[in-house]
Design a protein around this nucleic acid. Structure first.
Lengths: 204, 204
DNA sequence: GCGTGTGAATAGTTTCACAGCC
DNA sequence: GGCTGTGAAACTATTCACACGC
């Protein structure tokens, strides 16, 4: 079911683009190509979600996006914060795509007061001590962790206690989180390992 | 089988840490907890790979790492380059974990000469025009793409023609690559979408 | 007893085949 | 003819059960 969610998220992104460019209908085949799967799988996903298309035309772009948005609440604007304002953290603070796609980074945190004072960004930045208070008072639902490995679990704990629903983890450690909290790891080293290993296996 | 590769990559990373801290043996249970799976799955993976442990002791850390390293060629140092030296690209240029774990970023590329001249890093930086030549002459096997969406496919094509084996793609577009080339997408917006959507589904 | 090794059972996912519809 | 919708088939992955070894 994770695979379905992942595909739907990609489809949703693709539909946003198609909607801009004025497309009315789209086939399962085109969607499949756009996200890298098969048309069967796309239709099966929609079938499970009870989403209907039109014979010979495909799916209506606007209403498909609308339905997926409602079912997965991708239509709702969500607030996020970034903890750890090193190079990666500051790069993400100003990552323009978030803003366009329903996510708003509304706060950054770092343990170094110096760094906080030096940072140039439109987004509010705070010392980590303010984390719990800011997260709950501003209704932040998603935490992005870009702190060094040894601080990551502690930050995750604070974020969760303050009420975030999910964590995007860029630190290379496996975080322990309660199972109602969603955690997604983006470990760059592992990503390169995966690419290298897969190349070896598939071309053997 | 992708799942197995992914788990092995995580295990390999965990073993590197364990090796440093001097651990001799490790059980399938501990490995499973470390990477977020079950002990059955870990043992099954090893079984398929024909890797043996010791009754009542588990697996010998050093030799397990060695064996995985050989089978998936994770023991080989691999060279990578980064194309697109915006905030994310420059953050990755100096991402310290790569260096420790068998990957070496040996070149950066950008289309702006200005940017190239201003960048402060120990790593060699070049105009994109030099991409094909540098990649093939220096034996770069992995390309990391951090250019804007509209330039991503073109860069991917050049990288592939120059001989890279895999691409780590940070741009939010789906790249077309021949099927012997490994591509891995890290789309941050999609990651947040996935977290939000999964939370909605699992807590419904 | 404790932890591995693995065939068998189960669960989950993708693909296929084809009926239905405009 | 072209594209959807979906049950069935095929495939893949995980979990279980238990024999084995120290």
């Amino acid at each position: 079911m994770n695979n379905t969610i992942e595909r739907i998220c990609k489809i949703y992104g693709y539909l946003a683009v198609q909607e801009q460019s004025g497309a009315d209908f789209i086939s399962s085949k085109e969607l499949a190509e756009a996200i890298g799967t098969t048309e069967y799988t796309v239709r099966k996903d929609f079938s499970v979600l009870d989403i209907k298309g039109y014979t010979r035309k495909g799916y209506e772009v606007k209403s498909l996006k609308e339905k997926l948005g409602v079912k997965f609440r991708l239509n709702k604007e969500r607030r996020a914060c970034i903890v750890g304002l090193g190079r990666l953290g500051t790069a993400l603070l100003d990552y323009e795509h978030f803003q366009n796609d329903g996510f708003e980074i509304i706060a950054g945190f770092d343990s170094s007061i110096n760094k906080i004072e030096r940072i140039q960004t439109k987004i509010d930045v705070f010392p980590v001590g303010a984390l719990a208070e800011v997260v709950s008072s501003r209704g932040i639902e998603l935490g992005i962790i870009t702190v060094p490995a040894k601080a990551a679990q502690e930050i995750a704990d604070v974020l969760i206690r303050a009420g975030v629903k999910g964590i995007l983890n860029f630190s290379p450690v496996k975080l322990n989180v309660p199972k109602d909290i969603v955690r997604l790891d983006m470990d760059f080293t592992n990503a390169l390992r995966f690419i290298a290993a897969k190349f070896v296996i598939q071309n053997k």
